[in-house]
Write a protein that binds this DNA or RNA. Structure first.
Length: 485
RNA sequence: GGUCCCUUCGUCUAUCGGUUAGGACAUCUGGUUUUCAACCAGGGAAGAGGGGUUCGACUCCCCUAGGGACUGCCA
């Protein structure tokens, strides 16, 4: 049997970081088993679905390298098929028409909520109220589930799934384990609305079946939905897929991710935080899944090792410090031109001169190993921008005293005399200068660094000189060098 | 209110009845050093609480606490 997985987001916004991880698991499992990974856009809610959201989600998936096999299926195009299945279910007795109006259902919920509020406020309820509330809170059972009860003439109806009267349903989930619920605790969900359109519960099952999905891997907020959807498979006599409900991702505070306070949308990780997709894959994979003590896991290894049973049940918290360290690893490995292009696309890069940009381009191989992400790369590149005249403050100013100024002045001619402006040659010249004057590196290094970088983070001093280029380097030194009186 | 799920260092996790409870990130100390980063050496840091079962429990069972999901003619 060929494994088929799918990722089925509803296009109401952006690609959620938790969704991205779920997609990663689906993608990995399909790859691991030599199967297919399909995409489906659950756009049955016309009010909330937008094309912009579809594009944003697909864009996010592509960025992460999690494209689907084949074109995404638009659920809205399949409404006819969904309805067809609903009617077949009615024919088979697994579903029935129900004329209870939406307002009546809403009134039940409102009354239940009012009683709950009253109980919370007053501490207790009368026996009658308590009984009424318990009854209201029980799964709704329509009088029309009885096939003998005649439908009122001309009344609009919904199609409801029929739950068995007794017994329980057991789900064997790769993550959640074996869990049972009795049918009495399950509501008889609406399959077809009174306007004839399908609901999500129906659409998911029909599409999964028709698309040949063998493994449903989704967020565990859907776990209880499984119990409501399974009877549809049973009613149609379809083989049910295997389920894996993965826990949601929480924020650093342990609470559910909230857009207001957390980075939730995947494009934020790319555009604002400056992370690499391969680092995101590695980090996300390790959030809730592990392979012994392995931390840095390549895509090839991930595909080889990934296994549904290795997933954890508990939600994991996002840790940006760890993400940084993973990303740092991949930054160092990344192609120079690629890293440069990513940096150059950022708004901070736009304001720089051609000169500054060229310096950074030449230095990118060194810079990329020093930063945790593309934003940090900008920090590491600061010393290469036109920061003259360099303001010396605090520790840097202390380093550049009269004695140091004189040394800098003395160092200059030797540097100016170099015909080859490269790091090793510069390094040699500084070493020669030190030994010729009988001083250690410590007597010239700190001051030289101070006047060259103003205290900004920077690599080895000879490399700094090389990367700045002779003109800029000399200018920065001259700004502070002063021959001894 | 009901049903279901979760709980190991600060964080992600290993452990699948017998370990000095391991690793990673972070942190602290020391070293190296011209800054930062890196690197090297070392340290501290955990089984939510309470009951059982067992020769033996982080691991199995129960209760409590805390957290979460579902309970829509939303998805």
């Amino acid at each position: 049997m060929t494994v088929v997985t799918r990722f089925a987001p509803s296009p109401t916004g952006y690609l959620h970081i938790g969704g991205a991880r779920t997609a990663l698991f689906c993608w990995l499992y399909a790859r691991a088993k030599g199967g297919k990974f399909l995409l489906r856009i659950e756009d049955t809610d016309k009010e909330r679905s937008t094309q912009a959201a579809v594009d944003a989600i697909l864009d996010g998936l592509n960025w992460l390298g999690l494209g689907g096999d084949g074109e995404p299926v638009l659920q809205s195009t399949r409404a006819g098929r969904h309805a067809e299945v609903a009617h077949e279910l009615v024919k088979r007795g697994a579903a029935y028409h129900c004329p209870v109006p939406a307002e009546e259902l809403q009134a039940r919920r409102d009354e239940a909520e009012a009683l709950q509020k009253k109980k919370a406020a007053e501490g207790s309820l009368s026996d009658a109220e308590q009984a009424r509330m318990a009854d209201l809170l029980k799964p709704f059972r329509s009088p029309w589930r009885d096939p003998a009860k005649a439908l009122p003439e001309g009344a609009p109806t919904v199609v409801r799934l029929r739950m068995p009267d007794a017994g329980e349903l057991t789900v064997s989930d790769h993550v959640q384990g074996t869990v049972s619920r009795s049918y009495a605790d399950l509501d008889e969900l609406i399959l077809l609305r009174s306007d004839g359109t399908p609901t999500y519960m129906l659409a998911v099952v029909v599409d999964d079946h028709d698309m040949g999905v063998t493994h449903v891997i989704r967020g565990d907020d859907h776990f209880l939905n499984t119990f409501r959807q399974l009877p549809i498979y049973h009613g149609m006599g379809w083989a049910q897929p295997e389920y894996s409900h993965v826990p949601l991702i929480h924020g650093p505070d342990g609470k559910k991710l909230a857009k207001r306070t957390n980075a939730v949308a995947v494009d934020v990780y790319r555009d604002e935080l400056g992370y690499l997709p391969e680092a995101m894959r590695n980090y996300l994979l390790r959030l809730g899944w592990s392979h012994g003590d392995d931390e840095i896991i390549s895509d090839a290894q991930a595909i080889e090792w990934f296994d549904l049973d290795g997933l954890n049940k508990a939600p994991a918290r996002l840790d940006f410090v760890k993400l940084d360290s993973v990303n740092k690893h991949y930054m160092a490995l990344a192609d120079d031109q690629r890293v440069f292009d990513l940096w150059a696309a950022r708004p901070e890069a736009a304001g720089l001169s051609a000169d500054e940009t060229a310096r950074i381009r030449d230095a990118i191989g060194h810079l990329k190993t020093r930063a945790a992400n593309i934003v940090g790369l900008g920090e590491q590149a600061k010393f290469l921008t036109n920061i003259r005249p360099i303001q010396l403050s605090g520790k840097a100013a202390d380093q550049v005293n009269a004695e140091a100024k004189a040394r800098l002045a003395a160092l200059l001619p030797g540097l100016e005399g170099l015909t080859d402006w490269s790091e090793p040659v510069i390094k040699d010249e500084i070493a020669r200068f030190c030994s010729a004057n009988g001083i250690g590196m410590g007597k010239i290094g700190p001051a030289l660094r101070a006047v060259l970088t103003g205290g900004a983070p920077a690599p080895d001093i000879a490399l700094v000189l090389a990367l700045l280029g002779r003109n800029e380097a000399f200018a920065r030194i001259r700004d502070h060098a002063q021959a001894a009186a």
